[in-house]
Design a protein around this nucleic acid. Structure first.
Ligand SMILES: Nc1ncnc2c1ncn2[C@@H]1O[C@H](COP(=O)(O)OP(=O)(O)OP(=O)(O)O)[C@@H](O)[C@H]1O
Length: 731
DNA sequence: GGTGAGTAGATGTTC
DNA sequence: TCTACTCACC
């Protein structure tokens, strides 16, 4: 079962290394994840009990894959529980240790929308104007602090802004606790604080986890690193694998310097380098290496592949995003016709989620299925979040954020007046609003609270409480989560509510149906477990293990592509301002991370890479000129084919007033100039548009496409053959 | 209290 | 282009 003969010498050395700490440093596709998985099965085959080890993966998908490998090796009755992401492992630790923590084991995990609501509530409490201070930026300051393990009391109040944040932070934590909730950052930070401050708990886990293994170590943040240090305190047996050149989560507190820190903190650690790449062609590796070398990070080890040569990297310039998307679709089709690469083996990657729109439209137009990862997470959709808020409320009656979300959805006569009156009343009596609502229902209209609030306020609240009571009873009676959901949908007339909504009501109802399907699959699983799982899944986790999801190409951000591999990839939107993103321009560290992002993208490919950029870019619905990404000029010319621009691509170009963008194809495909009728700079006239100047002319799908800046009507794109475009004589 | 129109402001990546 | 919030009116 545990056959390591397929591994190379260095890989085997890593699998069998130890005892003691090990650092595996290696580039993309060198089998780091494979080695880690193999080591887990090796350790178990050597007699280590599966629950004496802890394996941390970057995605739930990777965790699932590893778990199934392990399960195939051991007694099927044994459940593998200690394999997961940092977040899911911390959540479980905190639940197990809930008696040592301020929250009960039913705590809920707040997602970004819940967090935002609570931040706003906290700001409101301190009369902080949410126009002057953006809730988002306050939240991200708090989030950064948590990732650096800075608690409320240690948070600096040196500047005026910090003082504001500190107050919000304090209130925010207070509210989280009151709601019996944790945010994502708390999962890590609270776990660390618990282990740090409670020696009994710490010793328990230190003795339990004899071996700890971590994938994608370069993207750990301080909280995660500290967690590992604490947990490995007893055995000092940490096996970490990573690649500093693939660190792409700096903005989330990740710090690739943890690799160096590890070497300092574990000086005895054995360091193993893997040099052979099993994923990509040598051409791809050479191109990727050329790109990342410009970061001068040093340390990067040259990778070699058995697959010598390989196709050159294609660079394509499209007119705009629509045409770029069409190019993607056409290329996927072309590659599938000659049976070379199936659509399901292709992936399209981009810097920002917003870029998926044009691609989706092109796929829809072509009638081609696709899988979209990211964007709006399924569980973040309005109707889904609403229904989940009902469920969460039943699970954790302290969750006022969920209460506020659905108390009047669908509307049931509880507007902002009624709700504020309720909150005020509860505050005065120091009771929980949800309990009070239930009390109103149970005690009837003659009771004290009912009278104090007044019938106008109390009646709709009591009616809502009646529904709540029914669901609580159902839960008590042991109804499954699936039938609980159905009961809520029924009692609230949710179907009618969705279907009477004006926008996309059928799509929204389909989402609800989808949720019901998911829930019915949960059977008799514990409600808390179900909610936790929902909070912690990422879209990328839905990719099957074989990645070829029913023959549909995958669309995802470069971040989501981490750790995956595809025979053919596209990276679209290689424009300055997009990749690298404009927000990284004046921070060298961030610019370096943009480059790493491209490096991660390039190294996902096994065989073919298509890079594209656009001539026009649209932001906020307004057009601007697209400048090819500065990274493009770092591609080795001899390994690239297609539209390689000769213009100085790092120069911002101010179109159209100052200078005209000149772009000439210096493609390696010899293209007879006879075919092209127009050249950039030429003066032309058109019978309706009038006079103009040619910006660019090139072949696209067999036609000559001419882009002309007309004096009166602006930029138009025309097909030379069909448009009546005439050359004007220039003096 | 509910609803719809109108408008300012935003989009960077994720657990 | 899309969203989230405000405000007027029912
Ligand atoms: N010894 C080997 N023989 C054959 N194939 C291998 C070997 N080692 C790894 N591979 C294959 O190479 C590919 C890359 O492996 P893996 O994903 O483990 O690399 P990685 O170093 O984790 O990559 P990345 O850092 O890019 O995520 C996988 O398809 C894996 O199956």
């Amino acid at each position: 079962m545990n056959d390591i003969s397929g591994l190379n010498f260095e890989q085997q050395k890593a699998v069998n290394a130890g005892p003691g700490s090990v650092l595996v440093l290696a580039g993309p596709g060198s089998g780091k994840t494979r080695v880690l998985t193999q080591r887990v099965t090796y350790l178990i085959s050597e007699g280590l009990s599966p629950h004496r080890l802890l394996a941390v993966t970057f995605t739930n998908r990777a965790a699932k894959e590893m778990r199934s490998r392990i399960e195939s090796q051991i007694d099927p009755k044994f459940q593998v529980r200690n394999v997961g992401t940092f977040h899911s492992l911390c959540a479980r630790l905190l639940r197990q240790q809930s008696e040592n923590d301020a929250r009960s084991k039913d705590f809920v995990i707040y997602d970004s929308a819940d967090q935002r609501a609570l931040i706003k509530q906290s700001m409101h409490y301190h009369n902080i104007d949410d126009k002057r201070y953006k809730p988002h930026s306050i939240h991200s300051t708090i989030s950064t602090a948590k990732n650096d393990l800075i608690g409320v009391s240690e948070f600096s109040r040196d500047s005026y802004y910090d003082e504001i944040v500190a107050r919000v932070y304090e209130r925010y934590q207070h509210l989280l606790q009151q709601n019996n909730a944790l945010d994502f950052d708390d999962l890590l930070a609270e776990a660390v604080f618990l282990l740090r401050d409670n020696s009994a708990v710490r010793e328990h886990y230190q003795n339990l986890y004899q071996k700890i293994l971590v994938d994608e170590f370069q993207d750990t943040n301080l909280a995660q690193y500290t967690l590992l240090r604490l947990l490995s305190g007893q055995y000092r047996d940490l096996f970490v694998v990573g690649d500093p050149d693939q660190s792409i989560y700096r903005w989330r507190g990740a710090d690739y310097r943890n690799v160096r820190r590890f070497q300092t903190d574990y000086p005895e650690a054995e360091i193993i380098y893997l040099r052979k790449n099993y994923r990509s062609t040598q051409t791809i590796l050479d191109v990727a290496t050329a790109v990342i070398d410009k970061n001068h990070s040093g340390g990067s080890v040259r990778l070699f592949s058995d697959i010598a040569g390989g196709d050159k990297i294609n660079v394509h310039e499209a007119y705009d995003e629509e045409e770029e998307a069409q190019f993607v679709v056409d290329t996927i089709k072309a590659n599938s016709i000659n049976e070379k690469i199936r659509p399901g083996e292709c992936a399209v990657m981009y810097r920002t989620n917003a870029q998926s729109r044009a691609l989706e439209e092109a796929f829809v137009r072509a009638g081609m299925p696709y899988r979209l990862l990211g964007a709006t997470r399924f569980y973040a959709r309005r109707e889904i979040k609403d229904l989940l808020a009902y469920i969460r409320l039943i699970h954790n009656m302290l969750d006022t954020v969920s209460l506020e979300r659905i108390i009047n959805v669908p509307s049931r006569g509880i507007g902002s007046q009624t709700y504020s009156a309720l909150l005020e009343y509860c505050e005065k009596l120091n009771v929980n609003p949800i309990r009070l609502i239930l009390k109103l229902t149970d005690d009837g209209s003659d009771a004290e609270h009912y009278k104090a609030l007044g019938a106008r306020t109390a009646r709709p609240l009591a009616a809502f409480g009646l529904l709540l009571r029914g669901w609580l009873n159902a839960l008590e009676a042991g109804e499954s989560v699936g039938s609980l959901l159905d009961l809520i949908i029924h009692d609230t007339n949710y179907e009618a509510f969705i279907k009477s909504g004006k926008e996309s009501s059928s799509d929204r109802w389909e989402n609800v149906e989808e949720l019901r399907k998911v829930f019915s699959g949960f059977d008799d699983r514990d409600l808390g477990e179900v909610l936790e799982q929902i909070s912690l899944v990422a879209d990328v986790d839905s990719l099957g293990v074989d990645l070829d999801g029913g023959g549909a190409p995958a669309l995802m951000t470069l971040h989501a592509a981490k750790g995956l591999e595809f025979p053919l990839i596209f990276i679209v939107g290689l424009n300055d301002g997009v990749l690298p993103h404009r927000r990284s321009f004046d921070e060298p560290e961030e610019m370096a991370e943009e480059r790493r992002l491209l490096y991660v993208g390039l190294t996902r490919a096994k065989e073919l890479i298509y890079l594209s950029h656009t001539f026009r870019r649209y932001n906020f619905g307004y057009g601007s000129s697209g400048i090819p990404s500065r990274f493009l000029k770092d591609l080795p010319m001899e390994l690239v084919t297609g539209d390689v621009s000769t213009k100085n691509i790092s120069d911002p170009t101010d179109w159209p007033q100052t200078n005209v963008v000149k772009s000439q194809s210096v493609s390696n495909i010899t293209r007879s100039s006879v075919d092209i009728q127009f050249r950039s700079g030429q003066r032309v006239s058109h019978h309706t548009f009038g006079l103009g100047i040619v910006i660019e002319s090139k072949f696209l799908s067999g036609d000559e496409l001419v882009i002309v800046a007309f004096d009166d009507v602006g930029i138009k794109r025309l097909v030379a053959g069909s448009a009546q475009l005439k050359l004007e004589d220039v003096e």
